[in-house]
Computed example of a mutant assay.
Amino acid sequence: MAGLSGNITLQQGPRSDQLGHMGGAQPEAENTLEEPVSETILRDLKRIAFKLKYVLIPRSAEQEKAKQLRDWDLWGPLLLCLFLALTLSISSSSGNSEQDTASLVFGIVFVVVWVGAAIVTINAQLLGGNVSFFQSVCLLGYCIFPMNVASLLVIILGFVPYIKIPIVLAGFAWSTLSSIGFMTQLVPESRKVLAEYPVILFYLFLGWFILVI
């Protein structure tokens, strides 16, 4: 029987730049199976804070900002959405005796954020945008952070006359500038206005909801 010889090569795992669909993939592979849960949580919190920096500084290095936000995750947007929903539900229940009011407000905010982000994302893709669904949802979710700050300030300073409108307008403008700067890079030049319009409506509705609550 003839001898068998040859080289056996192991197939390499998927490259880190192909793991965008998993969320939060880093350029270097990380072995996190044996690390403590506290370290995993701390690393994720640092990653969320790092991305929030690009939301707070809308005109910071656009290409670096785009690179970081393309490395999507949904933990940050989920936490920000929950915070906004909890803030507004607590605010609504403080001035209303109905027990179901807080639950209704919480549900409305939660649905509006995720469904609205999905609609804006689908619109950008239909316009020829070069972005994945979860990348866009991640971006829009992180950019509601100024609206979170605005809702918190409205609760704290709401007793001051005429203070709510300027605070909410500032949060709306900040959120819109942060997201539009990224979204307009993904669609053709001739369709930028069509991509910006739903984004403005998305944050405008959130701002209006903060005011009426």
Rank of each mutant, 00 (worst) to 15 (best):
I8D: 01
T9Q: 07
L10N: 03
Q12E: 07
P14C: 01
P14H: 07
R15F: 01
S16Q: 11
L19G: 00
L19P: 02
L19H: 01
G20H: 04
H21M: 13
G23M: 04
G23A: 03
G23W: 07
G23P: 02
A25P: 10
E28R: 07
A29C: 02
E30W: 05
N31I: 09
E34V: 11
E34T: 15
E35A: 14
E35G: 04
P36L: 06
V37W: 06
S38Y: 05
E39Y: 10
E39A: 13
T40L: 13
T40R: 12
T40H: 08
L42P: 01
R43D: 14
R43Q: 11
L45M: 14
L45Y: 06
R47A: 15
R47G: 09
R47F: 10
I48M: 12
I48T: 06
I48A: 12
F50I: 01
F50G: 07
K51M: 08
K51N: 11
K51D: 05
K51E: 01
L52E: 08
V55T: 08
L56F: 08
R59N: 15
A61P: 07
A61G: 11
Q63G: 07
Q63V: 10
A66D: 12
L69W: 06
R70W: 06
R70S: 13
D71F: 04
D71W: 05
D71Y: 05
W72R: 08
L74D: 03
L74P: 03
L74W: 08
W75V: 14
G76A: 05
P77N: 05
L78A: 15
L78Y: 09
L78W: 08
